[in-house]
Design a protein around this nucleic acid. Structure first.
Lengths: 380, 380
DNA sequence: GAAATCAGGTAAACTGTTTTACTGAAGGAC
DNA sequence: GTCCTTCAGTAAAACAGTTTACCTGATTTC
């Protein structure tokens, strides 16, 4: 008869102290515990292999220390490098702060059962991070304006009041516009993402047009064609562009997939990318580096986006909790500061005390231009 | 001052019953509750928007109703179609049984902190599903022979005593062998997965050789070359095969990626796949259908693998719990059977009563040959 | 008519933590 | 010698459910 997991009372009894004392030690609120007692208790914890129950720990605070990642119901959403990178970033940062990650898929049953509300209400989860949200996700409206812990990752909905975090698309557009202009290009087209549907796609398009205008280069309407963020449509968009405007020297594509499509279109029409036609992508997927010729593109750091999204959520949750005890926390930090040279608790996980993360101020993840060989210089 | 979430006691008070009654109704142990009382309580639950706290529910049973998916620490493990499909299957089946999924990555810190044990011990998680396990994951040895709820998905370690679930690789090999033989091929080579490292890769190779031998076709050692499960090495392996054995008419590749490499090798050597050389893959990735020519391959249903793995875990957990009350469960089912025409509980999630899933008996997920255009018929 | 059964329900104990408010003892000031 | 701090720690009440054992009144059974 294997006895079941030890409880905090077992540890207390074996150490000759009260459960309160053990709890204080575990939670590092140990200004009041003598180091003799502390080390005795820690030894017992180690000996009994005691691990505090997450369920019981969460019960008083009503917190499961878990964040949900919501993915759209695309076939094989997991099998996408874009989501993959963001998830990695979220996971890593969450793990560092002793949070766990659960997965949700925004499919019909998810919406019908209002699971996005229920998992918060039933304490399954402390916060929601929504990846790949579009305005077709009408249920977001229900969360608009409320203070539910929800963050939209890499999109924004002007019509709803929701917290979002985005890559710096305007900067991406400016980098590309400046680069193409500096290389001497004056006849430039663009294959854009789904216009009037994805906020960031429009942001990129508008910033690109505006920046070129600042350089005195005008982009007329018919030089911007929708490529729907995908290879096939991107190819058709680029083909149309090259057919109607044969004197185009460069095309900026709103993402790498469409740029790959543009490569195909160019090849089919006898143009040589990197020689007599310049193409710039946006994303820097692995495929961009292995394309022929290697693609000049903008690196959007999706891993960092995930980290930042998670950090922001954790900060929100931290603030929500410390309504009345902000002062106390400050005091505790001050008090714990000098006497900090103590041994750390061994087998019991102790989270880093304060997040201390430097967040990008306006919530924009920085981008940078990656110059490879798909852009020709027309200078001299 | 917004009052916090309602508790079971609030529901009880407002309905004029005891908390016990509410609990019995929520958990469908309601043979003893009159339908008048039941509907009154359900109405109150609806009105108060009551959702039982998962933390509190799990506390007595020490179950979080959560399964962890462990992924190997490959860069971008999430961004892989293989893992993606399995995860989808696991997620769907878990959701159906009201279980949640959390993600873990088997990186250094995961192993060093023995997180694979801790998340079980601290009740974060009820079971572990390990995807992409290799024998480099030495920590698995620690779980060997124990009755910890761990399932290895799509691999097996003869040296350790661990529960695994696998696709039917021997059958896959037989299907390909039979198909190639039936199409008249007698000079056949193979690009295999990492030999002596991945159990299933060897299983496939051996079954393929054995089956061809049954047809009287011998495959000598130098006709089997290791392609390391990847495009580049697969290409080199196929090139070597074609160079040393020019009269080969068909090559079976242990996965689709290597088959794609073989396509490239064939092209580079002036052979035409589907015309004067036959290539068969294994996986049926999306890329197989869009290859040129479309690839004949074996469909390994990774989604179903995920479903089956999850179902098996849930069954194990169910058995573990029902040590003494198997009889009771049977009685309850019998009793609830006739009186089942009642209205269902509305806002409170009620899991399907019995799994009733037909599991593949020996734990092998069925496979099937997908004939496309990369195999030539040499008959007549 | 007494005993047994049953339907419908409840009180109280239990799960394992955190947290608040208190206590006893030792040391210092007067 | 008494009073006031401070130190080190504790008792008990949350937190929100589940579960076991019991109760009451009505119907059956003999």
């Amino acid at each position: 008869m294997a006895k079941s997991r030890p409880s905090i009372r077992d540890v207390a009894r074996e150490s000759g102290v009260s459960p309160t004392t053990v709890s204080l030690i575990i939670n590092q609120v140990d200004e009041r515990i003598s180091s003799a007692t502390r080390s005795r208790v820690l030894k017992t914890i180690d000996r009994l292999q005691y691990k505090p129950s997450r369920l019981a720990q969460g019960l008083p605070s009503k917190s499961s220390k878990t964040l949900a990642i919501i993915l759209p119901d695309l076939h094989m959403a997991f099998a996408d490098a874009y989501f993959g990178e963001i998830i990695s970033g979220i996971y890593d940062h969450a793990a560092e702060q002793d949070y766990r990650i659960t997965l949700e898929v925004a499919r019909r049953s998810f919406v019908r059962s209002k699971r996005y509300l229920n998992i918060l209400d039933d304490c399954s989860v402390d916060g929601l991070l929504f990846l790949g949200a579009t305005e077709e996700h009408r249920w977001l409206e229900e969360c608009s304006g409320s203070d539910r812990p929800l963050i939209i990752v890499n999109n924004r909905f002007p019509q709803w009041d929701l917290d979002s975090i985005l890559c710096d698309y305007p900067m991406a557009a400016r980098l590309v516009a400046d680069h193409l202009f500096a290389q001497g290009h004056r006849h430039i087209g663009m294959v854009c993402g789904p216009s009037a549907k994805v906020y960031t796609a429009d942001e990129l398009t508008n910033a690109f047009i505006d920046r070129l205008a600042e350089h005195g280069v005008a982009i007329r309407d018919r030089l911007v064609v929708d490529g729907e963020f995908n290879v096939g449509p991107g190819q058709r968009a680029a083909a149309q562009l090259l057919a109607t405007e044969p004197n185009l020297t460069a095309i900026f594509c709103g993402n790498d997939k469409m740029a790959l499509g543009a490569y195909q279109a160019a090849r089919a029409m006898g143009r040589h990318v990197g020689t007599d036609l310049s193409i710039v992508g946006c994303d820097d997927l692995p495929a961009a580096a292995t394309a022929d010729p290697p693609m000049t593109t903008v690196r959007l750091n999706y891993y960092d986006l995930g980290v930042a999204a998670c950090a922001r959520m954790l900060r929100r949750l931290g603030l929500a909790k410390s309504n009345g005890n902000a002062q106390k926390t400050a005091d505790a930090a001050k008090a714990a500061g000098p006497s900090d040279g103590e041994a750390k608790a061994p087998s019991v996980a102790v989270p880093a005390k304060a997040p201390r993360h430097v967040l990008p101020p306006a919530g924009r993840i920085p981008v940078r231009l990656v110059e490879r060989q798909s852009v020709v210089s027309l200078n001299v």
